[in-house]
Design a protein around this nucleic acid. Sequence first.
DNA 1: CAATATTTTGCAAAATATCGCAAAATATAG
DNA 2: CTATATTTTGCGATATTTTGCAAAATATTG
Lengths: 248, 248
Amino acid sequence: MLKEDRHNIILEETSTNGSSSFQLLCKKLAVSEDTIRRDIRELDSRGLLKAVRGGAVSVSRIPHHYREREHTDIEQKKVIAKKALTLIKNKQVLFFDGGTSVLELAKILPADLNVTIITNSFPVANALEDHPLAEVIFLGGRLNKMSFATFGNETLKGISKFKVDIYFFGICSISTSSLSCKDLEDAELKLAMMQHSVKTVGLCTWDKVNSESTYFIRETKELDILITEKDKSASPSKPFTKLGIEIL
Amino acid sequence: MLKEDRHNIILEETSTNGSSSFQLLCKKLAVSEDTIRRDIRELDSRGLLKAVRGGAVSVSRIPHHYREREHTDIEQKKVIAKKALTLIKNKQVLFFDGGTSVLELAKILPADLNVTIITNSFPVANALEDHPLAEVIFLGGRLNKMSFATFGNETLKGISKFKVDIYFFGICSISTSSLSCKDLEDAELKLAMMQHSVKTVGLCTWDKVNSESTYFIRETKELDILITEKDKSASPSKPFTKLGIEIL
DNA sequence: CAATATTTTGCAAAATATCGCAAAATATAG
DNA sequence: CTATATTTTGCGATATTTTGCAAAATATTG
């Protein structure tokens, strides 16, 4: 096996898992730990990953405060993302907003899926960086440094240029009457994305169901599909079914 | 067997597997390892694959990531960035393109500087994340996964909405007659940024001075200031001074 | 601070690369 | 067709690089 091949495998392992260990890698590649150690040091010096004690972590331009938010309820979000994935077909054009469940979906997008993703979220764009087929259109605008996404009039105008197949909506708060969130500009953005997509799919962990926040986005009944981590037969989903929303 | 046939087999083997080794190839083709070695060296020089220790890897597999570029000549780039910093005043609005020297400038921007930075580069936006005062406007468009920056018509239209104070131009190639670069879309973008700024400041490591690339951007004389890591009294900067360009 | 795990360092063996050269193959000229 | 030049190929000797091991140094944990 070529050193180059080893390097590629190490990079792939590191970027897909976020990290990799000497122990695992030296077993997988059938070389000594020292060799892996030297490989990782070399890749580090080239800036392709970061060597740490015990192995390596992937370099990411995405700030840590975002990462922290990301890690809450990660398992539920993965379940939600898997369900959402079944809705995506080849050649579709999709809106992805800055929600963390949506980000999870971006991460598990299969490599053979050929889609165009329009987003205002840096983390989403970053997750799709190594995807071979996904075309990414980034929405311009003023950068919000907290959520690491763009907002404002420019972003809204950008959205209005499209009419996409599906909008994957990261839900902040949902009640039987309204969809709402904690930030005015985020509310404006989410409304615009709903208006410029054929179908809106809400991604939502259970704890956000039946809650309301300051900024109204739109009536809940405008939602087409709602995905949570629970089974669709779970009782509190009934009121939503009555509104004509499909539960997944 | 013709040499051409061997070359074709080597290329096919390399591109289908992503890599190929001398050992395998010399067995498969029933020639000595030296012959394969020479073949691969020739194919490398023609840019059809990349020779590495032990064999060859396919060129498509080697993404020219900015992450890799970022680490070369880092010290020179820091010197350049420090000089560029002296040009920036409070309340100014600036264009930053995706050059690595420009990125270095974004990294060292003092915390008390209150500026608006308009960029198409994710790394630049990311570098400014922790800056308390810098407002960041991100230019939308199609995301290029290699350079991790946006390009295309949308991006150009975004640029045309502004007339900024200074454009910090990451130079790819500069001769006394022309500014040029290796990518058509990058050339378009750089031209647009020049046209929509009052002053253009070129950031350029010495090794790029007096070189030319495929895509013409604009006449060199349109540049207002040129910054390199060398002292301005360095002799080869004279021809540029003659064009009315200030050297820093 | 001791016990343990991890990393660094120097080193020798193995693998790989380079160089010069001569034999073989191919091309060119008369 | 023959003689000569040119290119290609394989071989052996000699660098250079890579690899795994063991001891020493360093970091981590309780």
